[in-house]
Amino acid sequence: MISKEEIKHIAELSMLNLSEEEIQKYTVNMQDIVEFANKVNSLDTEGITESAFALDTFNVFRKDEVRESFDREELLKNAPSSNGEAYSLPSMMN
């Protein structure tokens, strides 16, 4: 059973603020969903290896060849705040 405390901890890990009301709501939702997800634990997977992919491919590499980088202006255009050269943030010192 998933608790409110766990939801708070998970929200911390996910960098989400949740109001008391939201915590309450997500806790109830998550109890249902996790119980549902628990179904996977009723399947016998003895001796079964995990698959991270649907396909069995491997060794997909790129040659070590330089490609032109992007125009900085293009990259910074979407930044909520920049000084024209770099993304800018409040001080990290505090």
């Binding site: 939801i7 998970i10 996790v34 996977v40 997977t45 290896t49």
Partner: peptide
């Protein structure tokens, strides 16, 4: 947010094997 919370939960320490790893085995089956 609900899905981020669920996803973070199933990957978090102590739950990884029971959910994520198990689900990856289900994928194999």
């Amino acid at each position: 947010k609900r899905r981020i919370i669920l996803g973070t939960y199933v990957l978090s320490s102590g739950y990884y094997d029971a959910y994520y790893k198990k689900a990856q085995k289900v994928r194999t089956i």
